[in-house]
Design a protein around this nucleic acid. Structure first.
Lengths: 120, 120
DNA sequence: TTACCCGTCTGGAGCGACTCCAGGTCAAGC
DNA sequence: GCTTGACCTGGAGTCGCTCCAGACGGGTAA
């Protein structure tokens, strides 16, 4: 599978995939005899995971660490699990932020409605 | 109130507040005779709102537009409300992303637990 | 009174995470 | 054989901060 399809499947842009490879987040993709990248199903699965981690706020630095563990193989399973558990904690905090922001918005919007209801 | 206190109250860093002023997100803060910024309670309320909008993913460009409307006064209430309603929609999408990511993590973590349960 | 902090100021450099672009290669279709 | 389109690389540009150097001014302490 080539890079445009990998992009469509993972949600990452073509540029981002190349950038992630350069940055060591993706374990060097194989090349065909034409010099083009060929993505395996495991590559895709990995990209999808990166997509979600990144989209929900995991910093690149932590993703690089996670990628390094992945390259180490099964010995690093416990540490990888720890990274994901930590990210779950981050998701909880983000949900709390969204909820708090919703409250702030609800208050502001209510204020606006009041002003509209009683125009000066 | 001076900038460090404004920072403590709003959650924005001192640098970020100055940056927001430079970028036109904050309606030029008054200065004391010493040349230092003096923040009014309304300034603080505004910064708090910016803090939450930014923290939950509103782009600067949209915040600049929102700030411009704010400077126009009461005539822009309807448009400002529209901006906030649009942001509520963004919050919903972000919650959906967090939920989807939680699913992906749960699946991955379960896989890891299985591998740990049956070490090679 | 002089010395030294402290918090503030400005302008500008640096950074993380992309995003876009110029210029080049190659395979396939007309 | 020529164009088109997907891909390649290296590097510049962008957004949203963050940090830093160098200067100023007020308050305390020796």
């Amino acid at each position: 599978m080539r890079i445009s399809e990998a992009s469509a499947m993972s949600g990452l842009s073509v540029d981002t995939i190349r950038y992630y490879e350069k940055s060591g987040l993706v374990p060097a993709i194989e090349r065909g005899s034409d010099g083009l990248r060929r993505f395996s199903p495991e590559n895709i699965e990995w990209l999808v995971l990166l997509y979600w981690l990144r989209k929900t706020g995991m910093p690149m630095k932590e993703m690089r660490r996670f990628a390094a563990l992945y390259r180490e193989g099964e010995d690093s399973i416990a540490e990888r699990k720890a990274v994901l558990l930590k990210h779950e904690e981050r998701l909880r905090r983000r949900r709390a932020d969204l909820d708090r922001c919703s409250e702030v918005l609800a208050y502001k919007i209510a204020t606006y409605r009041k002003i509209e209801g009683e125009p000066s």
